[in-house]
């Protein structure tokens, strides 16, 4: 019995002490749902660096449809998949990229933010972030179709926290599937963007 009790108390202690850390902005007040600590990665990547990135067309919150191929020969593209609207880490990641616009522009790059949430949800959520300079796309239907093609759709139906850098030729140059519980560090992405210069 004592062994059982020790076991249960240990589980409870871990539940209390190992909560994911995030610096939540007051911009969202109490409207953020905390899913707790999740399995860091729960999918298998289907794309390879050095190969063409799969094309897609998705609706944006602006009302237009955006295709990856429309940037071919014109802009480098960063795809930022984040797991879900109204969750802690995701709600901070894009406001950071919003501030970091100059890093993208200096390297002739467009950012496309993607989640599997529907358009109304994305509209309400991104409105809390201020005016975003980059398109936000919905991979809601067929659910997670694009995320599935890239191999970043998790078993619970949300995407990984993933970054893909695609050059003007449409070739995948960088793929980072981060721990879903942590925000990727900006410096690492900027380093990858600088590598695109002159390409």
């Amino acid at each position: 019995m004592i062994k059982n009790i020790k076991y249960i108390i240990s589980i409870l202690a871990v539940a209390v002490l190992v909560s994911p850390a995030f610096g939540l902005s007051d911009a969202y007040k109490n409207n953020i749902y905390n899913p707790g600590e999740l399995k860091p990665v729960d999918s298998v990547l289907k794309v390879k660096v050095g190969e063409p990135a799969p094309d897609f067309t998705l609706p944006a919150i602006s009302g237009e449809k955006i295709s990856l191929s429309q940037f071919k020969g014109k802009k480098n593209v960063v795809l930022s998949f984040v797991p879900a609207a109204w969750t802690p880490v995701c709600s901070d990641q894009w406001p950071g990229y919003n501030l970091a616009r100059s890093f993208f522009e200096e390297n002739d790059t467009i950012l496309l933010g993607i989640t599997v949430d529907n358009i109304p949800t994305l509209y309400a959520w991104t409105n809390q972030m201020g005016k975003l300079w980059f398109p936000v796309l919905s991979d809601f239907w067929p659910h997670g179709g694009v995320a599935g093609n890239y191999g970043v759709l998790r078993t619970e139906g949300v995407t990984e926290r993933a970054l893909f850098v695609i050059d003007k030729e449409g070739i995948l140059r960088y793929a980072n599937v981060a721990d879903i519980n942590k925000r990727p560090e900006l410096g690492a992405l900027v380093t990858e963007l600088k590598k695109l210069k002159g390409k």
């Binding site: 610096g23 902005s25 911009a27 501030l99 201020g130």
Partner: peptide, 10 residues
Amino acid sequence: FSMYCPHCQK
């Protein structure tokens, strides 16, 4: 603060 926090930016 946080660089990622919209209110902190503002």
